[in-house]
């Protein structure tokens, strides 16, 4: 299989997995930490409990994947939105740098934060 050395299928599969992860987990997390706890709809969990949860190695790994996959998903989709919606194909290099570069920087930040957590 000589022709098959394109990176596109891999990027697409990461985009898709990211789409699934975002659809499954972001609504509930945003509901809890964006509304329910800050606005007092639900009693917010104690700091100690959340530190115990996020501090668990497995949770940290899963959260890292959540962040990375969601960011890659967003970057990929945003890139094509600029092509389709604003016809900016001629700015391809800049768009690639901003979208995937941004996702990369965000993923590194997530990795550092979760690695040093606790």
């Amino acid at each position: 299989m000589m022709a098959r050395r394109s990176i596109e299928p891999l990027v697409w599969i990461l985009f898709s997995v990211g789409g699934v992860v975002a659809a499954m987990f972001v609504p509930v997390l945003l509901f809890l930490f964006g509304f329910a706890y800050p606005l007092g709809w639900l009693a917010s969990p104690s700091h100690a409990h959340l530190v115990a949860v996020v501090g668990h190695p497995l949770v940290r790994v899963l959260l890292f994947f959540l962040c990375t996959l969601c960011l890659l998903h967003a970057a990929h989709r945003f890139r094509y939105t600029l092509y389709d919606g604003l016809q900016l194909q001629h700015l391809q290099e800049l768009i690639l740098l901003v979208s995937y570069g941004g996702a990369f920087v965000g993923s590194v930040a997530a990795g550092v934060l979760l690695w040093q957590f606790g």
Binding site: M1, R4, P9, L10
Partner: peptide, 20 residues
Amino acid sequence: YKLSSAMGSVKDFLMPWRGK
């Protein structure tokens, strides 16, 4: 087709000795 093509690529990526 994207899905089956991407799965093929993932397999090639994880198992480079597979196929040729």
